[in-house]
């Protein structure tokens, strides 16, 4: 088994995780992340299980909520904890491009 991830591999996972890494950190992660990834390889040694998955050990199915309005926050509260805000809005540096999602 390889002992180190490549620089590119570290930069790729850091990108997925949205965490900036310094040159010094990259070197450490090359070893540390590889150690953890070697650990999880052990899953391939497990045999004899079936396909059924367990998402969480739920004890019952979902109870549904009645469509009834509850209390909402004052907009002042919404922005209170936000590092940057403007009027009633939470603010971020300008975002270029459209949302990936819905």
């Amino acid at each position: 088994m390889k002992e180190k991830l490549s620089r590119e591999e570290v930069l790729h996972v850091a990108e997925l995780a949205r965490i900036a890494v310094t040159e010094e950190e990259i070197e450490k992660y090359q070893v540390e992340l590889k150690k953890l990834l070697n650990d999880v390889e052990k899953i391939n040694e497990v045999k004899g299980y079936d396909d059924e998955i367990l998402i969480a050990p739920w004890s019952h199915n979902t109870d549904l909520r009645e469509d009834k309005e509850g209390e909402m926050l004052d907009p002042k509260k919404v922005i209170e904890n936000a590092p940057r805000h403007s009027g009633n809005y939470i603010q971020v540096p300008v975002v270029i491009g459209e949302s990936e999602g819905a």
Binding site: L16, I19, L33, I53
Partner: peptide
């Protein structure tokens, strides 16, 4: 977080995450 993101990305979700959920059930 980095390792977790990696384990869910692309084909890895099948290779690791869903496999783990299967064994968890057993």
């Amino acid at each position: 977080i980095m390792v977790g993101s990696y384990l869910l990305s692309g084909e890895n979700a099948r290779e690791y995450f869903y496999k783990a959920l299967s064994i968890r059930d057993d």
